[in-house]
Amino acid sequence: MATEAQSEGLAFHPMDQFIVKPLFGGETVGMMTPTNVTLWMALTILAITGLFVFGTRGRAIIPSRIQSIAELAYGFIHKMVEDVAGKDALKFFPYIFTLFCFIVFSNFLGLLPKAFTTTSHIAVTAVMAIAVFLTVTIVGFVKNGAGFLGLFWVSSAPLPLRPILALIEVISYFVRPVSHSIRLAGNMMAGHAVIKVFAAFAPLILISGIGVAVTPLSIIAITAMYGLEILVAFIQAYVFTILTCVYLKDALHPHH
């Protein structure tokens, strides 16, 4: 073991965990090739089904533990949509809840050792962010017609400032999906990469004397990072969802 580690040295491949690989061998990743993305998304679906369908099959007035977790999640997002975006946004609740569930379950499943974190990929988060962006924009125009443009016209500002503010508002509006998606993917990727970097230092004790100090430190660092990542996994799902609600509020009630 020691010789093997020595011969390999320290292996720094913090980004290897994000490589999309075909599940059943082969090199090319076609559009419908079953890859590790497919596997982990399927696991996400299974976990969601397990919690929200099998967990609630008792339909108990006094809930079981799993049922109360499902109810808690439902109540949490339901209240968030209602409080942030208003009562008329509740018809988007299943849509927002789907995004929240997918993100939170992907984030947590990604924390399992050897897991692949689908939400660390900008392709995944960008699709969701663009979907939110398009939904919000379309809803805004359908509900308010041209009045939706009032979102960019800050009527409470002094008149000379308004065109400038409008320009800034338009830019910030189009930057939304970018920040929305990069925030999530960046957070997930960074945390996992940092854990991997610390993990690469851990076997140093097998190679050189300095490892006596470095190895315990790196293990402690991994543990601490892992704890932080658990927090981040939830918070980023929460942030993504609440921003979706905020954007939806802008679309339904564009007047400041």
């Binding site: 559009m31 419908m32 090739t33 993305v37 996400t44 929200f52 299943p94 392709a123 699709v127």
Partner: peptide, 25 residues
């Protein structure tokens, strides 16, 4: 790898949406 990821993401989201909106919610 983008087409692959996007394809499976859309599939997953649609499946989750239907499971949640038809059964769970």
């Amino acid at each position: 790898t983008f087409p692959n990821q996007i394809f499976w993401l859309v599939v997953a989201l649609i499946v989750i949406y239907f499971i949640l909106s038809r059964i769970a919610l």
